[in-house]
Design a protein around this nucleic acid. Sequence first.
DNA 1: CGGTTCCTTGAGAGAACTCAACGTCGGTGG
DNA 2: CCACCGACGTTGAGTTCTCTCAAGGAACCG
Lengths: 238, 238
Amino acid sequence: MAFDLSPQHRVAPHCQACPVTSCPTRCDDTAHTWQAMVSLMPSQKPGSRTLMRAGEPTEGLFAVRAGCIKSYTIDAQGNEHVRAFHFPGDLVGLDSLGSSRAAANAAPVTPSQVCAVPAAELQRQMATQATLATMLLEKTRRELSQALSLSGEFTADQRVAAFLLQVHARIGSANVLRLPMTRREIGSYLRLATETVSRVLARFEEKGWLVAADKRITLLNAEALRELGEPVGLGLAA
Amino acid sequence: MAFDLSPQHRVAPHCQACPVTSCPTRCDDTAHTWQAMVSLMPSQKPGSRTLMRAGEPTEGLFAVRAGCIKSYTIDAQGNEHVRAFHFPGDLVGLDSLGSSRAAANAAPVTPSQVCAVPAAELQRQMATQATLATMLLEKTRRELSQALSLSGEFTADQRVAAFLLQVHARIGSANVLRLPMTRREIGSYLRLATETVSRVLARFEEKGWLVAADKRITLLNAEALRELGEPVGLGLAA
DNA sequence: CGGTTCCTTGAGAGAACTCAACGTCGGTGG
DNA sequence: CCACCGACGTTGAGTTCTCTCAAGGAACCG
């Protein structure tokens, strides 16, 4: 199996102590514990420490507790295409939920913690709890809205601006922002070449809108970025 | 309200006689009829005969019975951006389902028939019937998969090839295909200029892959198109 | 230390866009 | 009945945004 739930990685979820208060799989631990917490490290060797693999049987959902998970596909030429970044509180695997086979791969971008929810258990719970199905439907709908927004036609500057604001809203503090992912991964997600991402950041820096020190971004003029990236609609996602 | 359910348009659904056998809202008519069938004509005047309007309160879902419905947004410059085309059997409004306000506009592309399912009724049914919520989740997941596929980085030729095959699979017969929408609408959906769509079709015709007589397309080499458009993954959508 | 990945910057190429012109079609009204 | 108008579709010419190719420096790891 792609995802190893062996004892040395497996930990009780301790939902009551979890910082992700809005976690959709939050339970009271003592009762029906139908999830397990796992720590993950990103690896250079592709394939190791993978949560999901495209084409393999769907194993379930993963709730991100800490870190950053990417879901991605590999095309015929072997190029990686990032479909989404998942931050704490997000669910990974919604696009494969009812399907027998996973639609994409998923792997950690930085050291991460996730809670694994087995598909079989999920199906069982959904059949009886309409609330669970409704909640998952709502989460999926939001992802759909976001995907549709991003699939519009925007300039490189608009995409990058919207992306920075989105990441800042999720894991930023004050006006500082630490990007968990590489330029290549950002470009893959935004459909831009690595060099273009780099150039756009340099352009923003020239304008005095931010300071980009590698993965550490300091926002100096968030308003300008917002004005530019607003049409993309990544942030406001209703 | 954007969608007029006045008596002169309203017709009992007659699900038993409906050609859309896989309609997710299919009912036995005599029992709880929580939908109404409506005929729609496309209009030049923007705004008339609109099913949904972005930003207005969500009225519910629409099941397409015949014709073709587009959902779209209007940007700050007044340009239309088509997010999806919906064919018989599809549901319109999944991206607005749990939200209080509609995420997009929806209007007929050709003369169409839809069944309107009020949001309030839907919510009530979902609360008790886990099956309904699961079905809607599955439909939404498929739309999400498709949106994610299309949001990849592909050439104009790949996009158009995939699009033709998708439409053919939905409403084509043998090797003939009648496009319900204009070149501008196709381009808007595929993120291409109108002229580019036209040029790509001319290119395909030069290669002997198809004959394009305005909206009537005759496929001569579907295999070539499939090979080209396969990476887009619009058709296979698991 | 090598070796690898990441990031940046420069120069050139190309795919798709914009602008523009022209022909067709369908509806409208004089 | 036919001229007019607008939307649609096609084709050409030139432009531009982003990509590709290339090279160098920095950071990280075994």
